[in-house]
Design a protein around this nucleic acid. Structure first.
Lengths: 326, 326
DNA sequence: CTGAAAGCGCTAACAT
DNA sequence: ATGTTAGCGCTTTCAG
């Protein structure tokens, strides 16, 4: 194994000089810097991560708590993770995938100095991990927005605004009775942060505009078609469906295409562009910029790690994309 | 921060005794062990990962190279990762998510002693990372099966057998002309290991049984319906479709449900049970035990790390599950 | 059965 | 502008 001492010898300098060349923490003459750089290159030297973290008390690793269950919107999770990884690597951070998604996983990683910071996904409105997060004093960013988000830094898509935006779009298109085909029941009863906020934004906007709106937790998969049938049977006045459920979307779209042709309700979906693109028949799409959420979260965490002050709550504004109808 | 010295002092023993209590590498009197254990508990002591890896030359971390792009079967990837994480944690290993999915990512992680071993996903038949993997001398398990898999340890589902099994099932049901609705074109042209093997098994079995079979790379999403139409138009004799494409499956199933009702071709899918369950109209399902693949890979890697000999090639046999028709 | 102490490879004072 | 050196917290000889 190549060590910093090998490099120092090869370059004819002391080991601290090598260290300082790497960190840039003191001024080095161009010639020396060059000689050291060459030696590092030639020997393919990489500092030992453990030794570095022991001496510097920083690991350059971020612990990521991601929901690996199916049932959540898998594309969205994957893209958020991809965004996190990309942005983290750009700032020389690696990502450690935390196994347990409860507080114990955070504790373990923090106490054993495995990570410098945490990124926590799948946040619930009243998340039990919040207490641990404050007590641990490890910089943490939540991807989500719990109810009393005073003590923690949060980054997320503005689901509340997205719910309102959907209503606004339907209103603009002349609809007076609409329905939200939402997340699976498990997600709703868990009070997953985004589901709560989307529902709130949707209902508020409906009330404000005098539009009648109802919310329907919907299983992923073909059963979603049944929910749609039930909704339309029970509320025949419904002319617009707002879908936020990746696993239900293709079935809902295909189902509407064949059901009562000509008078099918209009469809607006909240999902990543690729998911929308894979599905036809959408009047409009509200972009769910998953990768950008992950990247933004990593960026905010980076600022936190750099000691910079940053907003407590950081929300990405919703944007309308063209539909895929026709 | 609590260190081993704090524990030693609290328990009234030497540092090395604490270390040995934790590792179990030498015999400790029950009383001492008990006292030390209590001190560890009370102080909530966790050994510093970096210090440990520096002294022991082992990190207890496994580097995982996972394809985070969309386009691959996201559910499958997620479940494999979940299996890996679960099994790894059970053996006290953590998972570091490698950012770049090329050889450079492996090099960096290995050279900087970030990980003890690698788990590599999304393997291509002629994978360029193989040379690096051998040269690095870090225990590695591929999830996949490259063409000349002599030098590396591989774990995967037996896609070749699965291709043959599908043909066999169609034959048993009396079909004489079938088609494989396969992975997206990108995946096929990349010669992703599983796509190659599935195609090979499918075609061989067709030839053996005198069944006519054709293969059709298929985009995910609603466009898959078009592919199905084209296939059925060009080959009117086709009575059976074998689908291995998670993103196409719901669209294919929904499309067949409405298209030429009564005489729709039979559908067999290769996918995880939950994916099948979300889709109706499948005559039979070949189980793609994604989580089990991940767990098996982690287990084999564990054996490798423990110095145990293990098979070079480890394939999980395909199994038939009941369909979701009717 | 238990201690003492020599490193592991690096960073960051403290020198000059 | 560069060198010397004292740790960082742990594992593991070497002693007893």
């Amino acid at each position: 194994m190549t060590t910093i001492a090998d490099v120092a010898k090869a370059a004819g300098v002391s080991i601290s000089t090598v260290s300082y060349v790497m960190s840039g923490k003191r001024t080095i003459s161009p010639e020396t810097r060059e000689r050291v750089a060459r030696a590092i290159e030639e020997l393919e030297f990489r500092p030992h991560a453990g030794a570095r973290s022991l001496a510097s008390r920083a690991t350059n690793v971020i612990g990521l708590q991601a929901p690996l269950r199916t049932g959540v919107d898998v594309h969205v999770v994957m893209q958020i993770v991809a965004g996190v990884v990309r942005e983290a690597r750009a700032h020389e951070y690696d990502i450690l995938l935390l196994a347990s998604d409860d507080a114990s996983g955070l504790e373990r990683a923090a106490r054993s100095s495995l990570v410098d910071a945490f990124l926590v996904m799948d946040v619930e409105s009243d998340d039990t991990r919040l207490a641990t997060i404050s007590s641990l004093a490890v910089p943490t960013v939540l991807i989500g927005l719990p109810a009393g988000a005073d003590a923690v830094t949060c980054v997320d898509f503005d689901f509340e605004a997205a719910g309102a935006l959907a209503v606004e779009r339907f209103a603009a298109r002349g609809h007076r009775r609409i329905a939200l085909i939402g997340s699976p029941p498990e997600v709703v009863t868990r009070h997953t942060s985004y589901a709560d906020r989307l529902a709130r934004g949707f209902l508020h906007a409906c009330a404000e505009r005098g539009i009648e709106g109802s919310i329907h937790p919907t299983p992923s998969g073909a059963d979603a078609a049944r929910v749609v049938d039930d909704v339309l049977a029970e509320h025949p006045a419904v002319t617009g469906l707002f879908v936020h459920n990746e696993g239900a979307l293709p079935h809902v779209a295909e189902h509407l295409r064949t059901r009562s042709p000509g008078q099918a309700p209009e469809l607006i979906a909240l999902c990543p562009p690729e998911v929308a693109h894979a599905v036809g028949g959408l009047s409009e799409v509200i972009d769910l910029p998953a990768e950008e959420i992950g990247a933004a979260a990593a960026r905010v965490l980076g600022a936190l790690l750099a000691g910079e002050a940053s907003e407590r709550v950081n929300l990405l504004e919703p944007r309308i994309l063209p539909g895929t109808a026709g």
